[in-house]
């Protein structure tokens, strides 16, 4: 029993990371119908930004306490990562959108931007792995054989809070209504007097900001940073978002946790090398049965 609860906790933690990144994918996709393949790398950049912020603030010039560093690093990381996301949108995606390029060319551009971020990082910082400093004093609670760290709780709570917040923004606010509007008809929206570019920038701020948060939390949980850390987790989060039904906030959230549970479930039963094989087979099966994902609406063709 303890074993099962322990694994459920682990799955929740992994699922939280997937969910946080998948939310960013789904936000941008929901508005622009653009698969922002650079998103996983924005997550990686977020982790690096967090690293540099943390080491600077802990360092001799500021000398802040670890907890204060954490408190300041969270908003600052989110803001700076959001800047990276917006920059990508501004210099790479927007000109293409203006020129009316085929949707897939924008996707390829995103893929290329991701590569630039990965290899640019590798070129500038070298291949050495960085060790993220401890920001929060680790406290471990044990109930029976189940161990729970405060970090795990923070990660899971963060994912849930972000989900509730984004769900609120998208479904209840005026700007969320504009975001949903753009996804239906990009051409009618400017005619209705809605500033389409500002809405898109706002979307990127939200998506990238939370990717930055995910990066910070990931770096705190698994304190080794390397330039390709965002690649696999990004692709997987994207798959999670699609299995949930891409474009739907709930889909990304539940899809992320679903993937977390499948992966942890596979690893507890089979050797860990089978993780990808089984996880992806299950996801493929889900998509065979429900081609538009768990929450996706079946698209009706009208003739």
């Amino acid at each position: 029993m303890d074993f099962i609860i322990q694994n459920i906790l682990n799955a929740l933690q992994w699922g939280s990371f997937y969910a946080l990144i998948a939310l960013g994918y789904t936000l941008v996709y929901g508005v622009l119908r653009l698969i922002n393949f650079a998103h996983g790398d924005i997550f990686m950049v977020g982790a690096y930004i967090a690293f540099f912020l943390a080491t600077t603030m802990l360092g001799p010039s500021f000398g802040l306490s670890p907890f204060m560093t954490f408190v300041i690093a969270v908003p600052l990381t989110m803001a700076l990562t959001a800047c990276v996301g917006v920059t990508l949108e501004r210099i790479a995606y927007r000109p293409l959108r203006r020129k009316g390029a085929h949707r897939l060319y924008v996707v390829i551009t995103a893929l290329m931007c991701g590569l630039i971020l990965e290899y640019g990082n590798l070129a500038v910082l070298g291949a050495s792995r960085l060790k993220f400093p401890d920001l929060i004093e680790k406290s471990i609670w044990s109930v029976g054989d189940v161990t729970m760290t405060n970090l795990k709780v923070i990660v899971i709570v963060a994912a849930v809070v972000v989900f509730i917040f984004l769900n609120f923004i998208v479904t209840k606010t005026k700007i969320g209504m504009a975001m949903r509007g753009i996804s239906y008809d990009k051409f009618a929206i400017p005619l209705m007097g809605i500033p389409i570019d500002s809405i898109i920038v706002f979307t990127f701020i939200l998506g990238s900001g939370f990717a930055g948060l995910a990066g910070l939390l990931f770096a705190m949980s698994y304190p080794i940073l390397e330039p390709f850390m965002g690649m696999i987790i990004g692709w997987k989060a994207f798959i999670a978002a699609v299995v949930g039904g891409i474009g739907d906030i709930r889909g990304a959230f539940y899809g992320g946790f679903l993937l977390g549970f499948i992966e942890v479930g596979v690893v507890t039963v089979f050797p860990s090398t089978y993780r990808d094989l089984f996880a992806f087979s299950i996801l493929l099966l889900i998509l065979w049965i429900k081609p538009t994902g768990l929450f996706g609406m079946p698209q009706s063709t009208k003739i």
Partner: peptide, 29 residues
């Protein structure tokens, strides 16, 4: 190809990525 009967676009993209991972992972095992 079989899922492509029913779905296309980004959902198919995902299926192909998943197949790519599956093939690699199967061979690794």
């Amino acid at each position: 190809a079989v899922p492509a009967f029913k779905t296309r676009d980004d959902y198919l993209a995902i299926i192909t990525i998943a197949v790519n991972y599956m093939v690699i992972s199967a061979i690794e095992n």
